[in-house]
């Protein structure tokens, strides 16, 4: 206990552990097939006899969407392998490009910006058209859902009424300093403070709360610690806390329609099954699915099963 070098080693270990928990932490229940050496072998070869590998981001809502596709495909006789809860775009997109993953639920605007930082498309249709151009050889975007899940600026109902706010443009009439609770990277995003200033002439400062618009962010807004909060538009807490999402007439925030990307192993029939699911996936439907997870803590498997049965898709 009195050895200073051991102490320092402990401190180092603690820092390292902290850094690791930041990067790793995949859901132990999520990835049934995480050790999927086999998936790279089956992917990309085509033909309906092989298993289709479906991936998902490390985001509960994305996993639910992936599970919808998986169960819908299984219901039509496809063999499916699940490879869920894979970090961020920088991690999983190379896997998709290499053919290790065949279907990945994605979000139009952010996916486009990943492949083309200079992209100018702002409507869902233009984004879809642009995606067809920029996706690497062998990958194609399937028909997007009406549902979107995008960053949105939210205020409390009371704050909106006090300053008669309906859109981001109204913020410039607010005569008090504006703070927005968001993840720290919000500071550097095109739709962050700099973008808001450019598009609407509004100054805000970021209060970093690192739970991606989760309960702590919502709490900060409801408590009045901040006046604005960046919350994903499909988050059920917006309705649960009676928050007002400010409109974005200048299209500062790109629409993030749920857009699956598919490899060549996904034949026309499989693509049609996924697109049939997408056709039923309205914004309200996605919020409802998320609510099942957030409020009832149901598993993505059960949520998907119940929803597909309700839509007559299973």
């Amino acid at each position: 206990m009195k050895n200073p070098t051991r102490r320092s080693a402990l401190a180092l270990a603690a820092v390292a552990a902290l850094a690791l928990t930041g990067c790793g932490s995949s859901d132990p229940l999520g990835g049934q097939d995480t050790a999927s050496g086999s998936s790279s072998a089956t992917g990309g070869t085509g033909g309906s006899g092989d298993a289709l590998v479906i991936g998902s981001q490390q985001y509960y809502s994305n996993e639910i969407i992936a599970e919808l596709y998986a169960q819908a495909l299984e219901a039509e006789g496809y063999t499916v392998e699940r490879d869920y809860q894979i970090g961020q775009r920088e991690v999983y997109l190379p896997e998709v490009e290499s053919g290790a993953i065949d279907v990945m639920p994605e979000y139009g605007g952010n996916l486009l910006q990943y492949y083309d930082a200079e992209a100018t498309a702002t409507s869902p249709e233009d984004i879809q058209a642009a995606l067809t151009e920029v996706l690497p050889q062998g990958l194609r975007p399937l028909e997007p859902a009406e549902a979107t899940d995008q960053d949105s600026y939210n205020v409390t109902r009371a704050f909106a009424e006090k300053h008669s706010l309906t859109s981001l443009a109204d913020l410039k009439n607010v005569d008090e300093p504006l703070k927005v609770a968001a993840n720290s990277e919000f500071e550097t995003r095109p739709y962050g403070p700099a973008g808001l200033k450019e598009a609407y002439g509004v100054d805000v400062t970021v209060v970093p709360v690192e739970d991606s618009g989760g309960p702590l962010t919502v709490k900060a807004l409801v408590d009045g610690d901040v006046q604005l909060a960046d919350i994903y538009s499909a988050d059920p807490s917006i309705a649960a806390e009676d928050l007002v999402t400010l409109e974005d007439p200048e299209n500062l925030i790109l629409p993030q329609n749920v857009t699956p990307i598919a490899s060549e192993a996904v034949d026309e029939e499989a693509a049609a099954i996924i697109e049939k699911v997408n056709a039923k996936l309205t914004p309200e439907a996605l919020i409802g699915l998320n609510r099942e997870s957030v409020e009832k803590e149901a598993s993505s498997e059960d949520i998907a099963q119940a929803w597909l049965a309700g839509q007559g898709l299973s």
């Binding site: 102490r7 402990l10 401190a11 603690a14 820092v15 902290l18 850094a19 930041g22 990067c23 920088e90 609770a181 993840n183 720290s184 990277e185 500071e187 550097t188 209060v207 970093p208 709360v209 690192e210 739970d211 702590l216 900060a220």
Partner: peptide, 30 residues
């Protein structure tokens, strides 16, 4: 003190600053 100094990076998780601010920002922006 050593345990806390190594863990105080978590203060940034709820907007309280400290050196963790860079840790989270660096992680999220690669």
């Amino acid at each position: 003190a050593l345990q806390v100094v190594a863990t105080a990076t978590l203060a940034a998780y709820v907007g309280a600053g400290g050196l963790g601010r860079y840790l989270f920002l660096g992680l999220k922006t690669q």
